[in-house]
Design a protein around this nucleic acid. Structure first.
Lengths: 184, 184
DNA sequence: GGAGTATTGTACCAATCGGTACAGTAGCGT
DNA sequence: ACGCTACTGTACCGATTGGTACAATACTCC
């Protein structure tokens, strides 16, 4: 009966979009099934832990992507400026220039935060910490680097919210431009 | 059978907290009933349109609060600096120094945005626009004022997200301090 | 105190929720 | 061709969802 042989990464991406669009509560198994083309049988075969395991796997998947494409570049000791630029590019790519919303940010807002608090805290914590370290390498004082890093991640998250509210991707582009100027 | 005679504002505040905490989908009538102490009979008496009417009424209620406490002060033509300071104080008060999350921002992220798109867009739009006007009065060019206003509202929204992720109200306080410095 | 309205609890509804059980099929290695 | 595992569809579960109906009670004004 196998229709598609979806590798796990594809599956996680699809399910991730459902969570992104509808939130944790709103993402029903019916919606997930429709989006993936999989019945409950298959879904529970891949994720015996059900919805909660799906969400956890997606968070881990996103976390892995950021680790590789955002956090690792920031640790470039040779050229911190290049690392920061690569982070901004990866961020723009990931959020599709503002067309996409931050799933982990959305989870942070409502009650689903309690289920995934550790992972959420770790994700944002590493983002800020690695950016701050890169900024100290570009010559900023540790205190100033912490401040700038937190400000930048706040600006990105806020721009995703406002961009979505206005249904206008330009908000996100402008925020990234400002970040580029402030960090450069 | 009447136990309490809750005025509508109190009722909206209580229900608002439920939506804030659980999101639109997650805020079930059972939760709302438990929080307010009202049965379905009463709830549907006050809000014949059900959950959607409740959410719309809450958005309007919040909108009204911001209109009065945030947007009107920003329109102070005599002393724009004082208006901006009053906006920052009201914002801090409203979000309880970061302990509270922005309901309208949360709605903007998930699918419930589609139901309330107009109201959400208007809320953030007026916030940015009135702040920008105040900034032109303090001597900024219109272009620079728009930029600063958008940046500030993004920073506030982002700080609410990060503050909640870290479970740390200091994130929000620092963001407001930065805003104060940038706008002053 | 009586009439009329505002408010309430309860019973009920079909639909959907997340989750389980399981028999059956597909695909693969041998 | 065989057996084993991976995968899948379907039927089903109890609980909960948002919503309706309505009779009963509380309150208000005359």
């Amino acid at each position: 009966m196998r229709r598609i042989a979806p590798d796990r990464a594809d599956l996680l991406s699809i399910i991730g979009e459902v969570f992104r669009e509808h939130g944790y509560e709103g993402a029903s198994l019916a919606l997930i099934g429709a989006a993936t083309g999989l019945g409950k049988g298959s879904l529970y075969h891949f994720f015996p832990g059900g919805k909660e395991e799906m969400a956890a796997a997606i968070i881990a998947h996103i976390d892995g992507w950021f680790e590789e494409n955002v956090f690792v570049p920031l640790q470039d000791r040779a050229d911190p400026h290049a690392g920061i630029e690569r982070m901004l590019e990866a961020t723009d790519r990931y959020f599709r220039s503002g067309r996409r919303v931050c799933l982990i940010g959305a989870f942070a807002l409502d009650e689903s935060r309690d289920l995934f608090a550790k992972a959420i805290k770790s994700y944002f914590g590493r983002w800020v910490a690695h950016l701050a370290e890169a900024l100290t390498r570009t010559g900023h004082s540790p205190a100033r680097a912490d401040e700038l890093a937190e400000e930048t991640v706040c600006a990105i998250q806020g721009a995703l919210t406002l961009g979505r509210a206005f249904d206008d991707t330009a908000v996100f582009s402008r925020a990234l431009q400002r970040a580029r100027a402030a960090l450069g």
